[in-house]
Design a binder for these strands. Structure first.
Lengths: 191, 191, 191, 191
DNA sequence: GATGAATGAGGCTTCATTCAT
DNA sequence: CATGAATGAAGCCTCATTCAT
């Protein structure tokens, strides 16, 4: 007997509507209708709109995090780990453009504006993976001796920007381009 | 010929409120009150909320654009021009954090989501400056042979990410760090 | 034969919440939670909110009534009986302030507004005790020759008013003050 | 040009509906409709339902207060002043039963439960008139030496109780009965 | 008897906008 | 140009109640 699927219907509807129309223009009533539930049911599961929005963000974050951890090449050298993470992120968001749009909105709205790591990579788990990576790289003198936040931005800033272009249809990110871009990011951070 | 005082009061109030609270949480009534005008006056100057928002966006864009063009080193070599542009952008947004927040929201909302250059650099003018720069660099084999959109992302993605961190207080972008970051971006795009 | 535990939990929760917050601000869900039962259980015992409210009123009324009848001095003269009733009412409500607040609300709401004796003394039993007392007093020319309703008000109006003040902390009704007040009420009704 | 009569339309509608149906069962939409205004207009004048309710209470209080002060017999002896006040209160509420019902509900709901002087006589002005009266009476040894709150209750408790009975049709308060009742109240408080 | 997810009518309020002055 | 009372559609959420387990 599966755990209430009304709840996940709501989440899916919210994801689609908010990603496509924005927080403002995705009224509760619209989400409710798309989810095929009663309004009371919505509020039975999510106390209010803010909580729905935040909860949905957390769920997406967790999914991404799990994806990245899944095949993380613990054994490979630093460069290999870096390439793995960036490539998987590219793939994930190309495959799940709604997740990208949702998170981008979240981070650029008052909901997420004050979140640390507004890099579409918020899970403590992932965050630490990258921090460890960067710190290790600095110590080993493989990476530039810059604040970790700067390395983050150099590595992930272009990714965010490009995925948006790809979703909007301004670029076509194929595997070759992903690889080349990742290499360019590596050039930015490496010594 | 000074534009109406009331009008600029409205724009300033809108900038502050929207930057800090988001479009969805900055109702006309609130902007009206903060601006110290009557609601009728507001609609006298701006036909509706969308127009206010767009108008404000255009004004900010024009300011940034003017700033960048002002001291543009037409004579210097490509690398020097690139460093100039990136550095001035950093400086501008550090000096005008509300402009950054406003534009970031604009680009990540349905208002601006479909704008071509969602890189806080939307003006045709600037846009062309950078396009020319990149195309010239590719031809001269100074820059990597990548789509211009990718070079854009490599150059401006980190900037956006870092300025947000700086505004949020997660990094402190001083001139040294700005220079180092710009160099790293150059490493990313140069051959 | 003890009535279901759940049932009395519900009644106690309803008493407390309604007395303190009013009918309109004591939703079923809140009573349900405070009672520690499931919503289905609530409706198992009380068909709907109105019935719960009325049922609770009846229960309180019966308790007060029983208290008054318990030591009623059948033998003592009229004045003694009157003093007994007033004193016991004072004592009861001072000891059970929530009962007072509940009943006060009940009588002043559409639920009880049309009840004959809106004097916190609704039971036929008690009602008749007082009616008999007053009618006897009139006949014996001990009490003023006024409509019974007027005697009621002269005797119980001050009581209601004072108990509220006491519960609110504006007066401190000790035994001395109770006695003095009762005497004053007697002055009001006696010839 | 009269001051907005929309506002007073709203107040009148609220008075009638709430007095007759109770706070719960007088939804804003119903008041709005009866007042013949748009919902926005309602909220233009009254921030929310609570404020409407409180504001209405204050207005009624002020009206009563003004009525009592109007012909207050400053020159007459204490007893005459007392009779004047009680009689005028009787008359006022008999003439304005909706005011009585509204205030009774207000005092017995969480809105007014914590108000001092829940004696349908809340204005500082009036309140002081009665306090002065009682204190003077105590000093002059005309009245019983009881706390002022007790004298209040003895004087006004019966009035409240009787007016309700009158409005409900259980008694018919004519001038004779008013006079007799007032005399009984005087008996209660006088030495 | 007991549970709690689900329901949906309806309540309160917001908010962009209009219009008479 | 400026004012601010008025508008009403629409948004968010509550709440008594039901029903399958």
């Amino acid at each position: 007997m599966r755990k209430s699927n009304k709840r996940s219907n709501v989440m899916q509807a919210a994801l689609e509507l908010i990603a496509e129309r924005g927080f403002h223009d995705a009224p509760m009533a619209m989400i409710i209708e798309k989810a095929g539930v009663a309004s009371g049911t919505m509020y039975h599961h999510f106390e209010n709109k803010d909580i729905l929005i935040t909860e949905l963000y957390r769920e997406l974050e967790e999914k991404i995090s799990a994806t990245l951890r899944e095949g993380y090449p613990v054994e490979r050298p630093l460069r290999g780990k870096f390439f793995y993470l960036i490539r998987e992120l590219f793939r994930y968001f190309i495959k799940n453009p709604l997740h990208f749009r949702y998170m981008a909105q979240y981070f650029n709205s008052p909901y997420g504006i004050s979140l640390r790591r507004d890099r579409l990579l918020g899970t403590p788990g992932n965050h630490e993976i990258l921090i460890d990576l960067f710190e290790e790289g600095i110590t080993q003198q493989i990476l530039k001796n810059l604040p970790v936040a700067v390395l983050f931005s150099l590595a992930l800033g272009p990714l965010i920007s490009l995925i948006r272009d790809h979703i909007q249809g301004f670029v076509n990110l194929d595997e070759t381009l992903i690889k080349q871009t990742t290499e360019a990011c590596w050039d930015a951070i490496k010594r």
